[in-house]
């Protein structure tokens, strides 16, 4: 997790955003001690609710920059991810894809690679998993995200750049970060850092690649890069526009300039 926090810290610095404006709600697999030193407000929520909680934070105070760190978001929080994108809620999602739910010892995650054989540490699916995983980037794009990127945790600079860029962008942005879970492949029984290297070396940067082509498969190289960067009115912008139109003077736009 630490490489991601490092990149996040770098990204914040580079973006010029005051850390005190940033709120980070996370769901279960992410509760690093180091976050205490970032200068942001941190909310460790419950499984799958980081985006919904973040939606409340943002609407409660539109001045906040809300950056949900999510892990379970494709399963128990899938609906919030989908609707966050549809509304174009102004959130920057850091989607940590560790291919397993690391903290609870190897439950199958729906964004993991499934074709390769797995070790028995995958206790929730001891006979390997056969379900098709999500292509989270493609899903985000289909739901209406305005910014999508994917990096491995070792692409620290690229990741930091993406984070800096997305922190200054309005709308539903999704950055997927590949971070290895423990002993995922039978062929790689080594430590996390070697696995991390494995991902890093097996990746290829293709900025601007169409999200539907960036599915992770064991046979091909992992495609990383910035895929989508477009403009679309955010939820609050649409809300303000619609209500100003119907209510006229009786309505004061929500959130002022940060709406």
């Amino acid at each position: 997790m630490n490489p991601i926090i490092t990149a996040f810290a770098k990204g914040i610095k580079k973006s010029g955003v005051k850390p005190s404006r940033i709120s980070v709600p996370s769901d279960i697999p992410f509760e690093p001690e180091v976050v205490k030193h970032l200068g942001v407000d941190f909310f460790h929520t419950i499984r799958g609710r980081a985006i919904a909680f973040g939606t409340g934070l943002k609407l409660g105070n539109p001045d906040l920059i809300v950056v949900p760190f999510i892990g379970d978001m494709m399963t128990i929080g899938g609906n919030h991810f989908v609707h966050g994108g549809r509304r174009n809620m102004d959130l920057l999602i850091i989607c940590v894809n560790n291919f397993v739910y690391r903290e609870i010892g190897g439950k199958s995650a729906p964004i993991q690679k499934c074709e390769k054989e797995q070790t028995t540490t995958q206790k929730f699916s001891p006979y390997s998993t056969f379900e098709k995983p999500f292509n989270a980037t493609h899903l985000a794009n289909s739901c209406g995200a305005v910014y999508t990127a994917r990096w491995t945790a070792l692409h620290t600079d690229e990741l930091a750049n993406s984070i800096a860029e997305a922190l200054n962008k309005r709308g539903f942005s999704v950055i997927e970060v590949l971070l290895p879970g423990p002993n995922y492949y039978t062929s790689i029984k080594e430590t996390d850092s070697n696995l991390l290297n494995f991902y890093y070396k097996n990746s290829v940067i293709k900025n601007g690649e169409a999200p539907r082509f960036v599915t992770i498969t064991p046979k091909e190289k992992i495609i990383v890069g910035k895929f989508i960067d477009k403009e679309r009115p955010t939820f609050i912008e649409q809300y303000n526009a619609q209500l100003s139109k119907t209510l006229g003077d009786k309505f004061t736009p929500h959130g002022g300039k940060n709406g």
């Binding site: 909310f43 919904a52 909680f53 409340g56 409660g60």
Partner: peptide, 11 residues
């Protein structure tokens, strides 16, 4: 969840 989030934002 959004209600608790908004409450944390101070409202």
């Amino acid at each position: 969840a959004s209600v608790i989030g908004a409450s944390c934002a101070g409202v």
